[in-house]
Computed example of a mutant assay.
Amino acid sequence: MPASVDAAPPEQRIVEAAAVLPEIGGVTGWAGLRWAGGAWFSGRDASGSPAEVELATCYEDVRSQPGFVVRQERLPPAELVDHDGLRMTLPVRSLFFCLRHARTLAEAVTMADLAAFSDLVSTAEAWEYALAHPGWTGVPQARAALLLSDENSWSPPETSLRLLWTLGAGLLGPLTNCPVFDLHGRHIGTPDVLDPESGTAGEYDGKLHLHGRQRAQDERRADRFRDHGLEPVVVTAADLAQPDLVVRRILAARSRALARGSSARSWTVEAPSWWRPTRTVEQRRRLVLEGGGHLLRHRRRAA
Rank of each mutant, 00 (worst) to 15 (best):
R260L: 11
C178M: 14
F117K: 08
R93S: 07
L287R: 09
H133Y: 10
A102N: 07
S149P: 00
D150A: 11
V27N: 01
G38T: 09
R297Q: 12
F225S: 03
T57M: 05
L80M: 09
G38W: 02
H187A: 09
S160C: 04
A145G: 08
E79R: 13
A237Y: 08
W267S: 05
R93I: 12
F96C: 05
L90M: 15
A237I: 00
G48C: 01
D239W: 03
A126L: 09
F181E: 03
R276L: 15
D195M: 06
E282W: 02
P156L: 05
Y59H: 13
A19S: 15
R301L: 14
A56I: 05
W165M: 08
V92H: 06
A112S: 11
E158L: 04
A238T: 13
H294L: 13
C58T: 13
P10M: 03
P9D: 14
L194Q: 02
S122Y: 06
P232N: 09
T123Y: 00
P196D: 11
L55C: 06
W154G: 12
A124C: 01
R299T: 11
L258K: 11
L146C: 07
V139W: 00
I14W: 01
R215M: 10
A3H: 14
G135R: 12
Q65T: 11
D227W: 06
A216R: 15
V193G: 12
A31G: 09
S153H: 00
L75Q: 03
D113G: 06
L251R: 12
P196M: 08
E197R: 12
V69T: 15
Q72H: 11
G38Q: 03
R103I: 04
A19K: 09
H294V: 13
V69Y: 04
A252R: 14
G48Y: 09
G229H: 08
E158P: 03
V139S: 00
R44W: 07
H209T: 08
E270A: 12
W127T: 09
C98N: 12
L114N: 08
L167T: 06
A238W: 09
Q12T: 15
A142M: 08
Q12Y: 01
R265Y: 07
S122G: 13
E203T: 03
M111R: 11
D205K: 00
V247N: 08
P2M: 07
F96R: 07
